[in-house]
Design a protein around this nucleic acid. Structure first.
Length: 688
DNA sequence: TTAGGGTTAG
């Protein structure tokens, strides 16, 4: 008989469970309330070896991830140091990722988790919420399948999160199916369904479900208020808001947000002022709303008030504030926010890094934008795109294209916006063939279908180079209807080439699409004037008069000592007006000595006499801003100006001369790009 | 010894 060999004793499993060291008091953890306290106990746990005791590490993780501290970075670093985390610790870190908008990380963690564990009823709602945040409906469906497989298909927490996930992903029918199959319908799933109907604009259905509910609490009313205002029915939302039996802070916030998004700033402001208590979301809704609607100054005023009232801005606040700074080009305000971010250790490896790069390039400091870009170790697509767009705006095509090459080498796949940046960079430098090359690369190598914006770039690229016939061919053969911008490009291109026929053709289309476009009449009349067709010039003038079209007043601004100074054409409202106008006189004399002859060809046609035209040029808003800068900005510092319109030819040559005469760097942001004037030259090489 | 779903900003 064959004797079986006795099975060898199992190898000793290395025990992870260590006893708590005597010199560490576990109850310390129970008393931690702040990050500071938690960090102290954390340090002690590392020093005494208590961190190796799994309950200690788990508790530390829960503290960092919990609602009071909620610091994903610390939570993640603790989690990563736990050798074999138990399922609850996985659940904690996954939830923390989702709450902090790192749902992609949450899904990656989940994939790791299922290798060793069967997820439980705590895990699934968190990952399903993560899918909802990412609109990852396919992944959501897979997890739905998994839930059914492991017997969690009728867990009411899982079911509610599925209703919510399908609703948020626009699959309202699937949401309804899960809802209808639920045995135990509590308030949460009813609310999720109302939210779902409201989100897809099915207001009637949302109201029907609301009325069918066995009971309603404040939460359900808020869902409805938010849903209605998000569908643009802000007045209906207000009616519900007024009818609510009790209003929570969230309902006030939802109402304010609804008003702000619809541009009803007064009503929002009124509610904001009537509130007894405000939280950071209240402030963020106001700031985001102003920023979104181009009311940058009000957004920044709000931001300053928020700081004054002792609130701590978060990631969302900073993103909006930086965007408004970019809108106004107030560099010193932007630098202040940047310093604040550094001091408070806000990481730049996400959207904030992108916002900062964008802010510095839009405020004219491409050097700072580059410095931020290079300081980010894990560069993501957004960072690359922001710097490429920024360099393009500053006319720095070759570094932009070089970085684009580096980005591709690093294995980062450009998206449609990156290509807009790349082609635009070519536009501003006149690199026609490069631009075409990248336009083709987009579809061939990356399968990105060009949008109207890309075609617009291509048309602009060809037109600026005077290749009007090719541009016209593109317009006539592209798969979408040409828009106003493309026709305007073609019109400008025709002027460069002196092609009256194509010019008239393009102008006709602009007038058809947007008859209020002032630039169209001006360029057209310039084409006629250049050909000496004065009767046509007066016809255009008559047409403008009849349509009551007026020129948008030129406005230039300059920031000095934290204040924004704005100048309109011929403005005399500034406190330093007297000094500014005597500076203008001095500038005129020095320009004359330098041999400057005013180029009056672009002055609006209604002005007849040469002398009046010249005066009009001299009072252009950017000249007033330059005069202000020469008086007030420290010698040696660049003068930074922002203008709402395109810089005119005469101002362009004058600014070049002034940079030489006064030995000053002058940086001008116009409505499409930057000009760096230095030693008599401009970075755009007179190509803009 | 740790933990779950529904509303407000981004």
């Amino acid at each position: 008989m064959l004797e079986l060999a006795p099975s060898p004793p199992p190898p000793p499993t290395p025990s992870l469970r260590r006893d708590l060291p005597r010199n560490f008091d576990f109850s310390l953890l129970a008393n931690c309330r702040t990050v500071r306290e938690t960090k102290q106990v954390h340090a002690l746990s590392l020093k005494t070896g208590a961190f190796d005791h799994p309950p200690t590490a788990a508790k530390l993780l829960a503290l960092y991830a919990g609602p009071e501290i909620n610091d994903l970075r610390y939570a993640r670093s603790v989690f990563d140091q736990i050798p074999q985390p138990a399922l609850p610790s996985w659940n904690v870190i996954i939830k923390c990722c989702v709450e902090n908008r790192h749902s992609h990380d949450a899904l990656c963690l989940f994939r790791e988790l299922v290798r060793d564990f069967t997820p439980d009823g705590f895990t699934l709602p968190c990952v399903i919420k993560g899918c909802a945040r990412l609109s990852a409906v396919e992944e959501g469906k897979q997890i739905h399948g998994l839930a059914l497989k492991i017997g969690l298909g009728s867990d009411k927490f899982v079911e509610s999160s599925l209703v919510s996930m399908y609703s948020k992903c626009g699959c309202i029918a699937s949401a309804r199916k899960v809802f209808d199959g639920m045995d135990d319908k509590d308030l949460v799933c009813w609310n999720a369904l109302i939210d779902g109907y409201a989100r897809c604009g099915e207001i009637e259905q949302a109201l029907e479900v609301f009325n069918e509910m066995p009971e309603r609490d404040a939460f359900s009313w808020t869902v409805l208020v938010d849903g209605l205002s998000k569908c643009g029915k802000v007045e209906a939302a207000r009616e519900i808001f007024e009818k609510m039996p009790s209003r929570s802070l969230v309902s006030w916030n939802a109402m304010i947000n609804g008003y702000m998004k619809s541009g009803n700033f007064n009503s929002a402001r009124k509610l904001f002022e009537d509130m007894r208590m405000r939280d950071l979301i209240t402030w963020n809704s106001m700031i985001a709303g102003y920023d979104l609607n181009g009311r940058f100054r009000e957004a920044l005023d709000m931001f300053n008030c928020l700081i004054k009232e002792g609130f701590t801005p978060n990631h969302a606040t900073l993103v909006c504030a930086l965007s408004s700074v970019s809108g106004l080009a107030t560099l010193s305000m932007g630098s202040c926010i940047h310093s604040y971010m550094v001091k408070n250790e806000h990481p730049l490896d996400g959207v904030l890094g992108t916002s900062l790069i964008e802010m510095y390039s839009k405020c004219g400091s491409i050097e700072s934008a580059l410095a931020i870009f290079h300081s980010i170790s894990k560069k993501k697509l957004g960072h690359w795109t922001a710097i490429i767009v920024g360099l393009g705006m500053h006319g720095m095509a070759s570094p932009a294209l070089q970085l684009f090459g580096e980005m591709r080498k690093a294995g980062i796949k450009p998206n449609a916006i990156t290509f807009v940046g790349v082609i635009n960079a070519c536009n501003h430098a006149g690199l026609v063939d490069h631009g075409r090359h990248y336009f083709e690369m987009m579809e061939k190598e990356y399968g990105i279908e060009p949008t109207a914006e890309h075609y617009g770039c291509l048309v602009d690229l060809l037109c600026r180079a005077g290749r009007v016939k090719e541009a016209k061919y593109v317009i006539n053969t592209m798969p979408m209807k040409p828009n106003k911008v493309m026709w305007m490009s073609l019109l400008s291109g025709s002027r460069i080439q002196g092609n009256q026929k194509v010019g008239e053709y393009a102008a006709r289309h602009v007038i058809e699409l947007a008859p209020e476009t002032i630039g169209c009449y001006i360029v057209l009349s310039n084409i006629y004037a250049a050909a000496g067709k004065w009767d046509k010039v007066s016809q255009v003038r008559e047409m403008m008069k009849k349509k009551g079209i007026r020129k948008e007043p030129g406005c230039s601004s300059i920031e000095h000592k934290g204040m924004l100074h704005e100048f309109l054409v011929g403005d005399k409202s500034h406190l330093q007006t007297e000094q500014i106008y005597s500076k203008l006189t001095e500038m005129r004399e020095r320009l004359k000595l330098a041999g400057h002859v005013p180029d009056t060809s672009q002055v609006l046609l209604c002005i007849e006499e040469e002398e009046v035209k010249e005066t009009e040029l001299e009072n252009h808003s950017e000249r007033l801003a330059i005069a202000f800068g020469l008086i007030n900005v420290n010698p040696g510092s660049p003068i930074r100006i922002m203008k709402n319109l395109r810089v005119c030819n005469d101002c362009h040559s004058v600014t070049k001369l002034l940079s030489c005469i006064y030995d000053r760097e002058i940086i001008v942001r116009d409505n499409s790009r930057f000009h760096h004037f230095k030693s008599g030259l401009c970075s755009c090489n007179d190509f803009w």
